[in-house]
């Protein structure tokens, strides 16, 4: 798709001829019109709201249209503590989003449970059930951090392939679009993690 020589492209650009490929055009369009899903879980959501409002203005990057319906959203910003009661709903919302879809895990709680990690009712990271694209550390992260994560996601989208072995997940027929929703068990969510998604590194002692 994009096997034009970079030197030739630069030379053509200098002469005023802009060469692009379908993949670049597609990714350029997608990365500049990311619609996030409008939902917040805890204090990180306040920072997310600040990012969307006029002072930080995520609209400058094409993320202004927060959609109240998962059917119209591209990006899920998991902003805040995910309780075990809320986790099935979040996985279900993710499942209901159309492809391509991306997830930003915002703040210490969404990454790992954060300061509430020892709590009986707190999920220790949303990446146990759904694939996360960008993690933002912080408690809560500042709006600049969310903007940075947004730009990182744009960079990731820009690099996605249209064809070939390493093509984007939503174009891959074998890659699942829905992930199993955990059920409320007697003491914990069942299963406690989706092993197809959650593969933590082995702890070396």
């Amino acid at each position: 798709m994009s096997d034009i020589d970079e030197g030739l492209r630069a030379e053509l650009q200098r002469q005023g001829i802009w060469v692009t490929s379908m993949q670049e055009l597609y990714n350029w369009g997608r990365k500049n019109s990311i619609w996030p899903l409008q939902f917040g879980l805890a204090c990180c959501a306040i920072e997310m709201i600040a990012t969307a409002a006029s002072r930080y203005d995520i609209a400058r990057f094409g993320g202004e249209i927060f959609r109240p319906s998962p059917r119209q959203a591209d990006l899920m910003i998991v902003a805040g503590t995910v309780t075990k009661k809320m986790a099935p709903q979040i996985v279900r919302l993710y499942n209901q989003m159309p492809d391509p879809k991306y997830v930003i895990s915002m703040g210490a709680c969404a990454i790992s449970g954060g300061p509430f990690k020892q709590g009986y009712n707190v999920l220790k990271g949303i990446d146990r059930y759904i694939p996360v694209d960008v993690y933002i550390p912080g408690c809560p992260p500042r709006p600049e951090a969310l903007l940075h994560a947004f730009m990182e996601l744009q960079r990731k989208i820009d690099e996605q392939k249209l064809t070939g072995a390493g093509k984007a997940a939503h174009l891959d027929r074998t890659h699942p679009s829905e992930f199993p929703v955990p059920a409320f068990g007697a003491h914990d969510l069942e299963p406690a993690a989706n092993s197809a998604v959650f593969q933590p590194p082995e702890i070396q002692r």
Binding site: S69, P70, R71, Q89, I90, R92, L93, N95, Q96, P98, D99, L162, T163, H170, L171, R173, P176, S177, E178, V181
Partner: peptide, 20 residues
């Protein structure tokens, strides 16, 4: 040619607010 459709039980569900 590019994006295979991936329908599913959850995706095609009636309600869309995360509730079953």
């Amino acid at each position: 040619f590019f994006q295979p459709p991936k329908p599913g039980a959850e995706k095609n569900a009636t309600y869309e607010c995360g509730v079953e």
